[in-house]
Every structure is written in structure tokens, then in C-alpha cells.
Design a protein around this nucleic acid. Structure first.
Length: 472
DNA sequence: ATGTAC
């Protein structure tokens, strides 16, 4: 794959048949994926062939190989010009995302209570493959409430406070969820998992604000140096996975009817305005709401434990997804267009002044939450004016080793002990789960974030260091 | 990511 270095932190893949637009990769040379083991740059070029794509097929500095689209990919299609929506551009874990909670408590004040706090959080956080959930739904009507209402429904049912919703993307729910497009099988899988972490790179961490880069913005976000926070990273579990599977299959069947050809079968798609496109977007929105309710329920559980152990509450800083497609208005060649922005392993980063931000955040921009790899620290960023890539930035460290390779690399090592030696309390489920997520399997999140900042996609606000990790 | 395979 031929890359042209356009400027620091920005490479271009020139447009050539059948690409409709160029590819753009925001990264340093050392962050670029290894072409031998990772086909993500070919995927960037493949995405550039999608009908209706505008501007460019973008990759964030944490780009790596995914299903159809790369993880770390951003692409927008023009809705009124036969633009398509592609489930592979969102990913299997629909609306996987991050929520950050801040306590009015410093590390020193928490003191030796950390261990008891971790025990409580571990006990209160259902996690691991398919196991348990905070909420046992009474019937399909309750699940429909989750699918339509997201965090709003969870708060209505007593799992949170009104203020939480001001600090959620879309105020806790997207409006266009269509539960009728969610299969019985997806419902069956989802009904037992509302309020559960899952496994893989999902986690709940107790963190400390280690460094603040912008006092004013951090202050508006409710963050200060030394402060204790809780970060929750999880998604839509089996429900989102099943929805992605169902709708990929449905689109594969009808693509030829719309005259769509793609260079990779995994890029199955349909026009946004087609029956299949609308059906997927309705189901995807339902999964998006499910993931938000999921994080709201885990928040409620964490708050109860936190209050019991410390007497303190946890204020929501923000909740943001990094696997989602959204209909948004962006300037394309200087003209406002309605586009379907796919962000897969990429985070929306609204600039200061954006009308979709709540009044108290509008002056500083949207909080962007970047979970690091296990044990290495996470970042809080904010959007910047005039950024490229449809107001998007990176989403995390980005894998460089497959899960299998990661386990192999940890052969003979004790992942849990390695974390404890860094003074990080660990509450895991399996050794394998920890081994798969060791930092050696990931890019350096600091290098990723600095590249994203260097490329003009966002600005650093604070860095958080983990002191305790609960994992599936 | 995921009842780690329909």
C-alpha cells in the first residue's frame, strides 16, 4: 500500500480505480500498522470505494485490522446521493463506548480502603462471557424500554439521576430506534445481559487524575489533579453482535439489486434511504440505546459500592460511544450536506460552540474519553474547531497483537502479578482474559493521543492512571 | 467484540 506523507501526522493513499475518494491516515510512521500482519490500510482503500462516500476514507492513529472497515476508521456517505450505510463500518459491538465518573475524593483520602472498594466493585459488576447482569428484565416491554430509551429509561426506572442525562451523548438515547428490526434471537441474547461488562478489552477501572494539561477545560469537565475517578468501558453485548450479524446477512443478499459492488464481501452495505439501510439504522439505534442503558446500570451499581465504601458519590463526566453510525450535517467542499458518518473505533469530538453540546460544556467542547490498554492509563480530550474527519478522533490504544499472539507472548508470565507490581489492584475472571489484554498487545496510548492531537483532531485535557481494574 | 463455529 503506497502512502504519501502529506504533512506531519498525515499520510495519503492516492485515489485509484475503483476508489471514489482518497484515503487519509493520521499517524506517525512508527504507529502505522505492520503491512505484513495487518491489512487495515488496504481496508482504508476498500472503504473509499463505497457508494456516496465523500471527502476521504479516514484512519485514526490507532488503526488496525477489522471486519470490512478497519478499527479506527471514519467514513461519511452523502445520504441524498445514494450514500450507503455498512454494518462493518460500525462493528459487531454496536455503541461500545466509555463512561467516566468523578468522585469528590483524592487518592490520599481513599487510602487503604482501595482493596475493599475493589472487592465491592468486583462483586457488583457482572462480567465475563455471557454471565449475569444487574437487571433481570420482567418482559419484552421492559426490553423495548431499554431499546427505545437507553440511559433515559434506566434513569426513569431509578438507576441514576436526571443530571446524568445531560452528560450523555444524545442526552442518553437516540430517537430513531426501531425495536421491530431487532430479531427474536438478538432480543433473547440481550434480555439477560442488561447491566454487564462483557469480556475482552472491556473494563471498569478506578483511576487517579495524574496530569491535567488544560486547567480551565478540566475544571469545566469536573476534573482536578489527584482526584479519584471510575471509568467504564463496555458495549451492547450479544444483542449488538446479533444485530450486526443479522443485518450483514440481509444486506449481502440485496446489494446486487441496488447495483452495488464492493471489493470485499465484508463491506456489505445498502443505501441509507433503502428499506435495508433504514432497517439496519433502526436496529443499530436500538443497540446504541441498549449499550447506553448498560453503562447506566453499571454506573448505578458502582455508585452504590462507592458510596458504601467512601461515603462519596460519583458524578458523570461524560458517556460517549466509539462504534456508531450517525446522520449528521457536515460541510463537504464547503456546502452543508446530510451525511451518514461511520465511526468504528473512532470517537466523535465536537468542537467548542457546537449546538449538540449541553450549555455547561458548550464553551469548551465535548469530553472525549480514550481508554488505554489495561494498566497503562487513559486520556480525556476535547474537540477542536475546524478538525478534519467529520469531528472524529482516536478511540484507544489499538491492537498490534492478536489475542492469540498476546496469550502466546505471556506464556510463562503472570499477568496479574505484573499489574500488581505496578500497584494496580486486579479483579479479573481468567488468566487468559488478562493475558489477551496486556499492554504489550497494544500500541502506546500516549503516542496515539499525541498523534491525534498533532493531526489537529483533538486536544489533551487530562491523563488518568489506573489503580484498580475489574475485568471480564 | 461475541453463547471464541451455522
Amino acid at each position: 500500500m503506497e502512502l504519501v506523507e502529506e504533512s506531519p501526522y498525515r499520510f495519503r493513499i492516492d485515489q485509484r480505480d475503483p476508489m471514489r475518494v482518497p484515503g487519509v491516515v493520521f499517524a506517525t510512521r512508527s504507529l502505522l500498522p505492520d503491512a505484513g500482519a495487518d491489512k487495515s490500510l488496504e481496508q482504508v482503500a476498500n472503504v473509499a470505494t463505497l457508494p456516496g462516500i465523500v471527502d476521504a476514507s479516514y484512519a485514526m492513529p490507532d488503526v488496525h485490522w477489522g471486519y470490512g472497515f478497519p478499527i479506527g476508521g471514519v467514513a461519511a456517505t452523502d445520504v441524498e446521493r445514494d450514500g450507503v450505510v455498512s454494518p462493518g463500518g460500525v462493528g459487531f459491538d454496536i455503541s461500545c463506548g466509555v463512561r467516566l465518573l468523578a468522585a469528590d475524593l483524592d487518592r490520599a483520602e481513599l487510602g487503604p480502603r482501595l482493596d475493599a472498594l475493589m472487592d465491592g466493585l468486583a462483586e457488583a459488576t457482572p462480567r465475563g462471557m455471557g454471565k449475569g447482569a444487574v437487571w433481570h428484565l420482567a418482559d419484552r416491554a421492559e426490553l423495548d424500554g431499554v431499546l427505545r430509551g437507553g440511559s433515559r429509561y434506566a434513569v426513569e426506572r431509578g438507576f441514576g439521576v436526571e443530571r446524568d442525562l445531560d452528560r450523555c451523548e444524545d442526552y442518553g438515547a437516540v430517537d430513531d430506534a426501531d425495536p421491530a428490526q431487532v430479531s427474536d434471537r438478538a432480543v433473547e441474547r440481550g434480555a439477560r445481559q442488561v447491566g454487564s461488562l462483557g469480556s475482552g478489552n472491556h473494563f471498569l477501572e478506578v483511576q487517579v487524575v495524574e496530569e491535567v494539561y488544560d486547567d480551565r477545560v478540566a475544571g469545566v469537565f469536573g476534573l482536578r489533579p489527584g482526584q479519584i475517578c471510575v471509568m467504564i468501558h463496555c458495549g451492547s453485548r450479544g444483542l449488538g453482535h446479533q444485530i450486526c450479524t443479522d443485518h450483514l446477512r440481509g444486506m449481502e443478499k440485496v446489494m446486487s439489486r441496488y447495483g452495488i459492488e464492493v471489493p470485499d464481501r465484508q463491506l456489505a452495505c445498502a443505501p441509507v434511504s433503502s428499506d435495508e439501510g433504514r432497517a439496519y439504522l433502526g436496529a443499530m439505534a436500538a443497540a446504541a440505546n441498549y449499550a447506553r442503558a448498560n453503562r447506566q446500570l453499571l454506573t448505578d451499581a458502582a455508585r452504590r459500592i462507592f458510596n458504601r465504601q467512601t461515603g462519596q458519590g460519583l458524578d458523570l463526566v461524560y458517556d460517549i460511544s466509539h462504534n456508531l453510525a450517525k446522520l449528521e450535517t457536515h460541510a463537504v467542499d464547503g456546502v452543508p450536506r446530510r451525511v451518514c458518518v461511520h465511526r468504528k473505533g473512532a470517537t466523535r469530538a465536537l468542537p467548542p460552540g457546537h449546538e449538540d453540546l449541553p450549555a455547561d460544556l458548550r464553551a469548551v467542547g465535548q469530553p472525549v474519553l480514550i481508554p488505554g490498554s489495561m494498566g497503562t492509563g487513559s486520556y480525556v480530550l476535547t474537540g477542536v474547531p475546524g478538525s478534519p474527519a467529520f469531528a472524529s478522533t482516536c478511540h484507544g490504544a489499538g491492537r498490534v497483537r492478536s489475542r492469540k499472539q498476546a496469550v502466546k507472548a505471556e506464556r510463562g508470565a503472570d499477568p496479574r502479578r505484573q499489574l500488581e507490581e505496578q500497584d494496580i489492584a486486579v479483579r479479573g475472571v481468567s488468566r487468559r482474559g488478562l493475558a489477551e489484554e496486556m499492554p504489550a498487545a497494544y500500541k502506546d496510548v500516549t503516542a496515539v493521543v499525541e498523534s491525534a492531537e498533532g493531526a489537529g483532531l483533538c486536544r489533551k485535557v487530562a491523563r488518568l492512571a489506573p489503580i484498580g481494574v475489574v475485568k471480564g
